[in-house]
Nucleic acid binder design. Structure first.
Lengths: 229, 229
DNA sequence: CAATTTCATATCGTATACAATATTTGCTTA
DNA sequence: TAAGCAAATATTGTATACGATATGAAATTG
């Protein structure tokens, strides 16, 4: 008889989503090893599905796989860190422009809700959650622009951005830039494509300047702390 | 006893590379079904590795996987087709600029060799091979620019471009645009970053205008014709 | 005869078993 | 005691087995 409550049937996507979310929220640090049977135990599936999930995450740059050695949460180099944001600068301003032209009232509601949640998270001191929501805000704009391929690329870039921020972010306590998001929303609501494009570009360049050049080593995480069974 | 000569031991990457190459050269048509044990037989490996390879290609947009139904060479919609080239327009001009600033004499040799091979292929009437080489030319420029992340994205975009061209290309016999490549090489050699950027943008926009709006259906391919054992 | 259902087959999805490789531990020796 | 080696252990790599699902053919029914 299949188990009903203890270990729900998890799909590859479930595993990817939960691990990705944990990385985005900085509950798992870069460099953390992801052993296959350990992850399998946590999610109640065999190594087969875990391997698929890890390979999928590796494709997004969130995980590094070393042959015969295993998977680790990726540690982007400083060079890669800069490239991530430089690439975002190439893609996202145009996306913001397209979003400004396409955004409906319903879309604006969704964006405002995102910001509200982000603020709440910050008020509760959950910086990791706020960071994840901030990433989702950017992704939501690509969705509004209805640019599937760019949305997919942006998904990868935002994942990597989370790692970059974990490794190279200067201001630990940063209230970050929710103000920039507010301004963006205003431009989108006004259908001001030029302004949306400019704001997005400035916003990203601003983030880029706030990366610290010296890389602090980070301690790997124990998976069982993150997913208590 | 394991076979020694007939079927060499293939890795996941081998399978991905060979299938990808066949798609890039239009030896496999969009829509072609890729059954797991059929591919496994061809490459002399079990379904385990084939599944990894197919999922990897799916991540690059080269293959579509339908649950419980299998993998097919992707058939980009017209909308996706436009998005592919629009995204290339966002990324590649800046890459050409960076390449112009970074290119060494040795890099120029490699590019010229690419063009020469492309011409030879066209002379022999091997349009598919020429197309693949053309894609590699673009990828080589990203490599020269030393932009790893963009190179990775470009790899995906060029893969999809091959499918788009198979489906939507207007001029069947097209000598295409090797002239554009020649001009680009000149700009790179002259370290003229501005000109390289402009040429690349024009080149890509030109390609975009040559896509046909009506989608011709294409006949799927028999795998055993492509990989005779 | 057309539409539908049923059953047989083909194919994919997941778990498990075993092989290959890497890592650690404990022993030996200088 | 430190360095090097060898066996034991841990972990990943690949193939295979079995279950689940979809597909297509044959049988059934209106």
């Amino acid at each position: 008889m299949p188990n009903i409550v203890s270990t729900p049937v998890n799909t590859v996507e479930d595993i990817v989503n939960q691990l990705t979310e944990a990385v985005h929220e900085h509950r798992i640090q870069p460099g953390t090893r992801l052993r296959e049977d350990e992850v399998g135990d946590i999610f109640g599936v065999s190594r087969t599905l875990v391997r698929q999930a890890l390979r999928s995450m590796a494709h997004d740059g969130l995980v590094t796989i070393e042959r015969n050695r295993g998977a680790f949460v990726a540690r982007p180099t400083l060079r890669e860190a800069r490239e991530v944001f430089q690439t975002r600068v190439l893609l996202e301003p145009q996306t913001a422009r397209a979003a400004a032209e396409a955004a409906t009232a319903r879309d604006m509601k969704v964006l405002e809700r995102h910001i509200a949640l982000e603020h709440e998270a910050l008020d509760r001191g959950e910086a990791g959650l706020a960071l994840k929501l901030s990433g989702e805000f950017h992704l939501e704009i690509a969705r509004i622009a209805d640019q599937k391929i760019i949305e997919d690329f942006l998904h990868q870039l935002i994942s990597r951005s989370s790692l970059v921020i974990a490794l190279y972010w200067r201001r630990r306590t940063a209230l970050c830039e929710s103000n920039a998001h507010h301004e963006l929303i205003e431009a989108l609501r006004a259908q001001d494509a030029d302004r949306a494009e400019d704001l997005m570009k400035d916003h990203l360049l601003d983030l880029l300047t706030q990366l610290d050049l010296s890389d602090r080593p980070t301690a790997p995480t124990s998976l069982h702390d993150v997913f208590p069974s």
